[in-house]
Structures are given as structure tokens and as C-alpha cells.
Amino acid sequence: MSAELALEVKNLKKYFRLDRRRTLKAVDDVSFTVGKGEVLGIVGESGCGKTTVGRTIARLYTPTSGSIIFDGKDITSAKESELLWFRRKLQMIFQDPYASLDPRMTVSEIIGEPLDVHRLATGKERAERINHLLSIVGLSPEHASRFPHEFSGGQRQRIGIARALAVDPEFIIADEPISSLDVSIQAQIVNLLTRLQEERGLSFIFIAHDLSMVRHISHRVGVMYVGKMVEIAGSEEIYKHPLNPYTKALMSANPIPDPDIEKGRTRLTLPGEVPSPINPLPGCRFAGRCPQAMERCKHEDPELKEVEPGHWVSCFLY
């Protein structure tokens, strides 16, 4: 990790207009940074906007407002034709390895496509690079001529990773890359991602709903709730000293695979359910379920503040 920033996101908003009266505020004023060689985990429940954040940064969506500074350059409103360099530097790994690979393409076509788009290799060199990428992710050259349906979920995710690595990116956004996989296969993929990240000094955003997994692979963790970033801290810090009541509840809801610890834990169970991001009420989004909500929380929106070095929280308690 260096102090140099790979990515700076400032006041990012992504709204989806549903009809004349309703707007879905998927990401609503989110700011954070990712250092070079750093892994930032983003965790939250369904509908919190974590996927939209990832996709907006990758410019699969055009932001509603705010700015995205990648490697010192503002790419917020760059045209697609100006983004080719950016697409080579930032790659995505998707959740569903069944939907994200074209079933009519062979593995070598899937992995070779980015090489063609960015004109990185042709002929013999191209074939060699494909084989090399396959071996990096733990597949073998004879897999190159096969189709995605011939592979298991874990192997498909490996193909997706090889494709992302084909252009030699500096930054990877992985959106729930393991949640459709079995436990023992999850560990394989997580170990692979961690190893690649370290070996290549990649910057990384790892998006998932499983807090223990996110914490495991990240240097820092950001917690989102209904379009807002409610807390960001180092992954040890966020477990030991969670500040936002939502982070505490999330931590408490996450069962630990150890019966003695589990049975002895005092649990903070949240009442109610996650509110809708469509036309959200004013005030803190969590106020309706928060055990420590105050009058102020219902009217004012707390801002994300640095309360201790490196520990950011948006909550009026601090």
C-alpha cells in the first residue's frame, strides 16, 4: 500500500428515474478513496447500492453527479471513445459465472477478446498469452478450446478472472465474485484473488454481502446502507471498534462458526427491514431501525466524517 491514490470517488450519485414521481437513489452522495495496491471491501445488504457503486466507477453507468478520479484523471463524464485506456486499466469480475461468459464462445475466444480489442497480441503470441493466463488461474491449456458449459461454477469464475487479467489491469472491481459458489470452492477463488492481488500489486474493490468474507480479503472495509456509505475503517478496526449502530448490528447478525462463541454472544437484532431506496425519507436512512436514533436523525442527514485517523463514520453519535 502506498499513499498514492488509485481511485478517488467524490460525492458520487447515481439515480434511476423510474417514472415522473419516483426516483431510485441507488447511490446517494458517496465518497471514498482506494490507494494503489489496496483492497477496499464494500459490504451491505441487498439494495444498498454496492453493485451500482462498482458499476458506476467502471463507467458501465453514467454518474448522475459527483466525480470519479482514476489515476489522477477525471473520467466522470468522459465519452466512451475516450475511455479505452481506462478500460484497459480497470477490469471487472462479475457474480454470476454462468451469465457473464458468452456460451457460444470458446474459452480461448473469451480470454482472447480483450487482447484483440486492445490490440495487445496476435498470432502465436496471443495463443501463448492465453495459455499463460489459464495457468495463472489454475486451468490448463487443453481447456482453451472448450465452451463455458463444460465447466463447473468455480472453473467458470477462474475463466472470468483470466479474462479480466488478460489486459494486465491495475485495478479490479469484483462484484460478489464468490457468492454463487460452494464453500470449499469459495476458499479456492478467494485465495487465488488474494495471491494475484499481492503478486501484481493490484488495487481492488471487493463487493459482497458476506461481512466475514469481505473483511477477510480487504485492507479496509466500507459499509453501505440504502445508497449511503455509513462507515469506512481498516478491517481489523471495523471488527474491534465498529461505530455506526448499523455496522454493529451487521456484525452481530453475522453468525460465527463456533458454537460456544455463538451461544455466548449477546445479539443486537434489528427490528424491521431495509427501507426502499425509492424516494427515501429525509434524515438518516437507518433512523427507523436504529436502537440509538435521536430526534435529529429523522430530519438531518449525517455526513461521513473522519472521527479517528482512517476511521470514517456517518452518524450523529460521533
Partner: peptide
């Protein structure tokens, strides 16, 4: 499986 109460970024037994 990773655990919330464990050190992070160690290799998981796969």
C-alpha cells in the same frame, strides 16, 4: 470459511 473474529488476509484452507 473466514471468521469475523479472525485475523484477515491469511490464506484460507481450500
Amino acid at each position: 470459511v473466514p471468521r469475523l473474529d479472525r485475523k484477515t488476509r491469511t490464506a484460507l484452507a481450500s
